[in-house]
Amino acid sequence: MVKHMIFAGIDIGSITAKAALIKNGKLIGTLVIPTGYNPVTAGEKVFSDLLAQTKINPKDVTAIVATGYGRNSVAFADKAMTEIICHGVGAHFLNPKIRGIIDVGGQDSKAIALDTSGQVENFAMNDKCAAGTGRFLEVMAKALEVELNELGNMSQSSNAPSKISSICTVFAESEVISMIAGQQKREDIIAGIHESAAARVGSLATKVKLQSPVIMTGGVAKNKGMVKALESRLGIEILVGDFPQENGAIGAAVLASRLKR
């Protein structure tokens, strides 16, 4: 890694845009903002806002790598790389012991197996269906008239999670509406929603045979109920780091430091 140089990673997701800066091999700043309807504008804004926050001149940034579904919209990046690779590198950078990643974002979910050097050994991805993603939880929260960030805490008080049989988000929403009409406890419905989502995501983890220690990334990692449901489903402890949403951007910044200039 080149010393005394600053490298940036930008991750444009469907819901949020993230940026990270690395200097001398150390993380010096991260930022998360809503992506909005324009990924081009989001990429420019999250980068410029982070530079302003860290008081760094754009000219001092040596290289930039973009990732996420909107990575090709970041025209000022030196290179675009897949989020699978970036998540692996980011997790290894933050904790070299990590061997597995469960990433649950707004529109997709992934399970990634890593080797001892942080290289991706295997992965599975669900990007065709909203079930088990942040969007799934968002739809359910709306049906229950609960704030999305309240789901995790509310589900903790459930002793009898409701059974949601539908995999499809649309049908699962209909089930939830019927449960509300049947006056089932809101906490039990939420716990059932987490178990349903965990079953979908857990199948990805099982498919790639994730080994401990496993870390969860993505915005859904902030949902304690979802983490608990996944732990129960897989029978392993799941770690949540300090930068679950920023992990991909951090990995992109590390990869930027490896680019030959």
Rank of each mutant, 00 (worst) to 15 (best):
Val2Glu: 13
Ile6Glu: 00
Ile10Ala: 09
Ile12Pro: 02
Gly13Ala: 13
Ile15Arg: 14
Ala17Trp: 00
Lys18Phe: 04
Ala19Asp: 07
Ala20Thr: 05
Leu21Arg: 02
Asn24Gln: 08
Gly25Gln: 14
Leu27Arg: 09
Gly29His: 03
Ile33Asp: 02
Tyr37Ala: 10
Thr41Ser: 11
Ala42Thr: 09
Glu44Pro: 00
Ser48Pro: 02
Ser48Asn: 14
Thr54Ile: 08
Ile56Glu: 04
Pro58Ala: 04
Lys59Gly: 07
Asp60Arg: 05
Val61Asn: 04
Ile64Thr: 15
Val65Arg: 01
Asn72Ser: 14
Ala75Ile: 10
Phe76Asp: 07
Ala77Tyr: 12
Ala77His: 12
Asp78Ile: 08
Met81Lys: 09
Met81Val: 12
Gly90Ala: 04
Ala91Ile: 00
Leu94Ala: 06
Pro96Gln: 01
Lys97Phe: 00
Lys97Met: 01
Val104Phe: 01
Gly105Ala: 09
Gly106Ile: 00
Gln107Asn: 09
Gln107Tyr: 03
Asp108Glu: 12
Ser109Asn: 15
Lys110Ala: 00
Leu114Thr: 09
Ser117Trp: 05
Ser117Asn: 14
Gly118Cys: 11
Glu121Val: 15
Phe123Arg: 02
Phe123Met: 10
Ala124Met: 11
Asn126Tyr: 14
Lys128Pro: 04
Ala130Ile: 07
Phe136Ala: 06
Glu138His: 08
Met140Arg: 06
Lys142Arg: 15
Ala143Glu: 14
Glu145Lys: 12
Val146Phe: 04
Glu147Tyr: 06
Asn149Leu: 09
Asn149Thr: 10
Ser157Cys: 03
Asn159Thr: 12
Asn159Met: 07
Ala160Asp: 11
Ile164Cys: 12
Val170His: 05
Ala172Trp: 04
Ser178Arg: 10
Lys185Pro: 09
Asp188His: 11
Glu195Asp: 14
Ser196Gln: 13
Ser196Ile: 02
Ser196Met: 11
Ala197Gly: 10
Thr206Tyr: 10
Thr206Gly: 13
Thr206Ala: 14
Leu210Met: 13
Val214Asp: 05
Thr217Asn: 12
Lys222Ala: 15
Gly225Glu: 08
Gly225Cys: 13
Met226Asn: 08
Lys228Gly: 03
Leu230Met: 09
Glu231His: 08
Glu231Ile: 06
Ile238Trp: 02
Asp242Ser: 13
Pro244Asp: 07
Pro244Met: 04
Pro244Lys: 03
Gln245His: 05
Ala249Phe: 04
Ala252Phe: 01
Ala253Pro: 10
Ala256Thr: 07
Arg258Cys: 08
Leu259Met: 14
Leu259Ala: 11
Arg261Ile: 15
